[in-house]
Amino acid sequence: MSEDKVIVANRGLVRADFNFWVGRYLDKFYDNLENKKVIGNKCTKCGAVFVPPRKVCGECNVVIPLEENWVDLPDTGTVVNYTITPYRINDRTLRKAKNLLLGMVQIDGSNTSIVYRLLDLEPSEVKIGMKVKIDWAEKPKGDPSDIKGFVKV
């Protein structure tokens, strides 16, 4: 082992931005988010309601047809899990002063949960089972950021 570490950094030599086609199911989901509406889809076999919607239920291994089994859902839900972290994923060396409070929220009428920020809440106020509702972005764009987070009902 040498005393000095010589590093060659890869800065800007290669840049490969990807465009991901979200597929027809998420496309419909994002169109609805843009109108401040949440939709899910329901497995034709077991009846589980998925948010975000998906083409295949893994448990049943069946396709949920694109044309049917959509479910309109409210913008309310239940906190089923939460965590608090001082880290921002791109920079773990820097512990940010402000803790990020994240919840796993099960939208009412669905069987899955989604991960978003819990807003206007102190960590000590968060309880599992707590009812919350979506805080919508002022100008929704049809992407995941349309949900700013969840606030206490």
């Binding site: 086609w21 998420l26 965590t83 773990r92 991960v115 978003y116």
Partner: peptide
């Protein structure tokens, strides 16, 4: 950057956009 590279495990069409789901937060959950 280990944690950044692990972010590439997440769904680019959904969770990766906001990066709330990652190897650090999932440990807490």
């Amino acid at each position: 950057p280990y944690h950044s590279t692990r972010l590439y495990e997440t769904d680019p069409t959904w969770e990766r956009q906001l990066a709330y789901v990652n190897d650090i937060t999932s440990a807490g959950f």
